[in-house]
């Protein structure tokens, strides 16, 4: 469970709370970076390590919920745990709907926070893993020639070799050769494996982009 590469970001306008959270996070072997405002945090580049965010809801300037919106806009998939001294049901519902990991009223038990932290980091790890996989698949797709890409699209659409040959006005043998290269480049062991890989990315869009 202890993984020193994981980082916990803390955003709270109360220095005492910031410091207390930092200590608590440190005590479980995690790194904590603290910020006194949402704006300050948004200026930070997120590191390439598992991370999560603990944020107060009521703050001067951007509130915690505003911060959540901003992150979504930037497509930054960092899990958020909200802590609040005066949470109301509507606020927590909104936060949870927007994807918050947890919503903790102050004062909270350390275990509650740590559980939330771990699930957040786990979630982040998972996300990061998926993102890495997609990145790899995209890299493999990009290694294909334009003709191979065309063939890939039709193959994953479930067309037979001779149908593809007809569509692309190629010989069936040529199609077979392309297909063998595709399997090799995509590191797919079977047609089913190839389909699973390509499902994770939008190969059509990717084909367009590559043109």
């Amino acid at each position: 469970m202890t993984s020193f590469d994981a980082i916990v970001f803390v955003v709270d306008d109360d220095p005492l709370i910031r410091d207390a959270l930092e200590q608590l996070i440190k005590s479980v072997g995690l790194k904590a970076y603290t910020f006194s405002s949402a704006r300050e945090f948004l200026e930070e580049d997120l590191p390439d390590t598992p991370c999560c965010l603990i944020s107060d809801i009521r703050m001067p300037g951007l509130s915690g919920l505003d911060l959540q919106d901003e992150l979504a806009k930037k497509d930054l998939k960092i899990p958020v745990i909200f802590i609040t001294g005066h949470g109301t049901v509507p606020t927590s519902v909104r936060a949870m709907k927007a994807g918050a990991v947890d919503f903790l009223p102050k004062p909270f038990e350390d275990q509650e926070l740590l559980d939330a932290l771990h699930s957040a980091l786990e979630q982040n790890r998972q996300t990061r893993k998926e993102q890495a996989e997609i990145k790899e698949i995209k890299r493999r797709v990009e290694s294909l020639t334009p003709r191979e890409h065309e063939v890939l699209v039709l193959v994953t659409a479930g067309m037979l070799n001779k149908q593809i040959a007809y569509d692309l006005k190629l010989s069936e043998n040529t199609v077979k050769t392309h297909r063998a290269h595709i399997m090799q480049k995509m590191k797919a062991e079977s047609l089913a494996d190839l389909v699973r890989l390509t499902e994770k990315i939008d190969i059509c869009r990717h084909k367009d982009d590559s043109r």
């Binding site: 608590l24 005590s27 479980v28 102050k106 004062p107 038990e109 350390d110």
Partner: peptide, 21 residues
């Protein structure tokens, strides 16, 4: 409540961090 809660929450977190250390 918020004003009292803030230090209270901080104290609790500090204390529990201390326990862990």
């Amino acid at each position: 409540a918020h004003e009292i809660n803030q230090p209270l929450a901080a104290v609790q977190s500090y204390a529990q961090a201390a326990q862990r250390f």
